[in-house]
């Protein structure tokens, strides 16, 4: 691991100034469950770490008023076990509690979780490994394109990269139209979460739209009646503690048996958290039967472009969406 200096500012503005003084090779670190992990593989090589976890009062969870607001340093486990979130926004609580292990959820913070990097095995093979990776080393090539692509994405891929966006919580936040509060050298701004993520295109090493020195300070989710009728349905190779093969974040506003509005986003199948507007439109005004749910699932995957070994994700994903819709509808009735 490359040596680095370590700073521990106690206010957010101090952290931003520290970043500006440190220069291009600086990184913010919160829980460190992704960054420190990738530093051990020499994939991330920061020369300066700015630990933001000593910033006081940046870990609040607010559920009053017309929105939910999670400050960036709230641990994943704290948001996942909040009683209001569990009761009124199960899609958010489940996306968090089905991610990682309790040890990692205690360490990882919700802000940093949005910036988790891919688990593509060719990427993680490491800087000292034998496989090329355009994300790790721009222009070196992509071993996954003609390699073992079972875990790779079927949406948003390019000739340069098919790596899956690994997160669960970001998928739920995309479904729920969350906004991010961001602080940086140029001041503060807000950003719809969908705009945080870039498609790989021919620059897969650029994953986020944050400018150098910007940090996420809070996540804001508008309150909606669809919250109670929501779920995060995650299908994995094993029952627990695994990344999604396919997942669906679903929230339904119902008018009796009819869907008035559906929120649907997909995980485990795309290069960024993937909203599914085709399926949402197909459901509007429909009575939700198992057949209608499966049709919507198939619509969500109509634009999929699988590779050699990941074609199963198309049918698995469609059925995951269908099952999630039925779970969400059941919850909206209770």
């Amino acid at each position: 691991m490359q040596p680095f200096t370590y700073m521990r500012p106690t206010t957010a503005p101090d952290a931003v100034s520290a970043f500006a003084s440190a220069g291009a090779d600086a990184r913010y670190i919160a829980g460190g469950t992704t960054l420190y992990d990738l530093m051990k593989l020499n994939i991330e090589q920061p020369r300066h770490l700015i630990d933001i976890t000593a910033i006081a009062g940046l870990d609040k969870i607010e559920t009053d008023g017309d929105r939910l607001r999670f400050e960036a340093l709230a641990p994943m486990s704290a948001v996942a076990t909040n009683d209001v979130i569990i009761r009124d926004y199960p899609v958010l609580a489940e996306a968090l509690s089905k991610a990682a292990s309790q040890q990692l959820r205690n360490m990882a913070r919700v802000g940093g979780n949005l910036l988790q990097r891919t688990r593509c095995m060719y990427f993680r093979n490491g800087a000292d490994g034998v496989y090329p990776c355009n994300k790790r080393e721009p222009g070196s090539g992509c071993a996954a394109l003609r390699g073992l692509d079972r875990g790779q994405a079927v949406f948003g891929t390019s000739d340069a990269c098919t790596a899956v966006s690994p997160g669960d919580f970001p998928v739920a936040l995309v479904a729920m139209d969350a906004q991010l509060e961001i602080l940086g050298p140029a001041g503060s701004r807000t950003l719809p979460i969908g705009d945080l993520y870039r498609l790989p295109a021919d620059t897969p090493h650029l994953e986020f739209t944050l400018a150098p020195g910007e940090m996420i300070t809070a996540i804001v989710v508008p309150k909606t009646a669809a919250g109670r009728g929501s779920t995060y349905h995650k299908i994995r190779d094993r029952e627990s503690y695994a990344f999604a093969l396919a997942s669906a974040a679903v929230a339904l506003e119902m008018d009796g048996d009819q869907v008035s509005r559906a929120h649907i986003a997909l995980g485990g199948v795309a290069t960024k958290p993937w909203r599914a507007p085709e399926a949402e439109l197909k459901l509007a005004g429909q009575r939700l039967t198992p057949e209608v749910a499966l049709d919507a699932g198939r619509a969500a995957f109509s634009g999929a472009s699988p590779g050699k070994y990941n074609g199963f994700k198309v049918e698995l994903g469609a059925r995951t969406v269908a099952d999630a819709l039925l779970i969400a509808a059941e919850r909206s009735r209770s």
Partner: peptide
């Protein structure tokens, strides 16, 4: 509980 291997001692 935490994973001590991914916790910077700092």
């Amino acid at each position: 509980r935490v994973a001590s291997c991914l916790t910077l001692a700092a």
